[in-house]
């Protein structure tokens, strides 16, 4: 299985089958998304005629231009970026602190705390919508980025802590002991020893937090109005009652997915490595 395919002849059949399977898998993974990209750069008439027409001369970025020229859409983009980044920073800051504390000190009840945090994950967002709305409004945070960031932080922190605990667990304690004896504070140890050592895991978790915040639809739909509207809400809205623009929906879909995709691709090394190092041992 593991790089151990010997130099046996009969492997060749398997090899071909394997390559075919991989090729099919790649097509399966990529083509649906590419189709949406195609949808966004051709006039809808081309795709609705039969047979479909893919004349290169019909290629157009008009919808992209239209969306980037729409101040509301651009605002929702900025909102999404701000919310995604802020949520990630808060989650990683507070999450790694808490995870370190749980991982290293295993105080009584820390397991219970961990479980309680997962319980939070089990709550359907639907039931929290009205009380969260009331909470946000009463603190003047309805339709504000701050409110959204706080909400996401609370939703995502438990998972971040869970993931970080398993990363920290896999780092040998001896190094920290040495640093402690050298007079390093706990915070110093966390900052200089533990987080650098869990680098890929840290990055993977951060990206996980970012993607979760970036993708949310339901809470954003309930907790935002015109000011703090995020990309997924805006994107879903292209499906209207009396005006549905599928080209715009596809374009907005591509725009919504691309930054995350780019991020994931740039960070793929850490993601794979990071996951190797911890999450799955939880």
């Amino acid at each position: 299985m593991n790089d151990t395919a010997g130099p046996r002849r009969r492997v060749d059949v398997g090899r071909v089958a394997h390559r075919v399977a991989v090729a099919l898998l790649v097509v399966y993974l990529v083509v649906p998304f590419l189709w949406m990209v195609v949808y966004s750069v051709y006039p809808s008439e081309n795709l609705r005629s039969s047979p479909m027409s893919f004349a290169p001369t019909d290629l157009t970025l008009a919808k992209y231009g239209e969306l980037f020229g729409d101040s509301g859409f651009v605002r929702s983009m900025t909102n999404s970026v701000v919310v995604g980044v802020a949520t990630t920073v808060i989650c990683m800051l507070l999450g790694s602190l808490a995870a370190y504390s749980i991982s290293r000190f295993r105080f009584r009840g820390s397991q219970t705390l961990l479980l309680a945090m997962m319980t939070v994950q089990a709550i359907p967002a639907i039931v929290l919508a009205v009380p969260l709305f009331v909470l946000m409004r009463d603190f003047g945070l309805y339709d504000s980025l701050t409110g959204l960031v706080l909400t996401y932080a609370a939703f995502i922190l438990p998972l971040v802590i869970w993931m970080m605990v398993s990363f920290f667990d896999s780092i040998p304690v001896n190094l920290e002991r040495a640093a402690r004896i050298d007079g390093c504070s706990h915070l110093g140890v966390l900052r200089r020893v533990v987080i650098p050592l869990s680098g890929p895991g840290f990055a993977a978790t951060a990206i996980f937090a970012f993607i979760t915040a970036w993708s949310d639809f339901f809470l954003a739909k309930i907790l935002t109005g015109p000011n703090a509207e995020t990309l997924p809400v805006r994107t879903a809205a292209f499906q209207g009652l009396f005006a549905t623009d599928y080209t715009a929906a596809a374009t907005a879909g591509v725009i919504t997915a691309l930054p995350v995709l780019a991020l994931a691709l740039v960070a793929q090394r850490w993601i794979v490595q990071g996951i190797t190092e911890g999450a799955v041992k939880g």
């Binding site: 998304f33 879903a236 995709l261 793929q268």
Partner: peptide, 30 residues
């Protein structure tokens, strides 16, 4: 499948991230 050694393995693995990066709303539209 993707753990075996073959040319382009790294690329194939990276492509696993494509669906993950697509937000659920976009997934639905798609």
């Amino acid at each position: 499948l993707l753990n075996q050694r073959f040319r382009g393995r790294a690329v194939a693995r990276v492509l696993l991230l494509v669906p993950w990066a697509v937000p659920p709303v976009v997934n639905g539209i798609m």
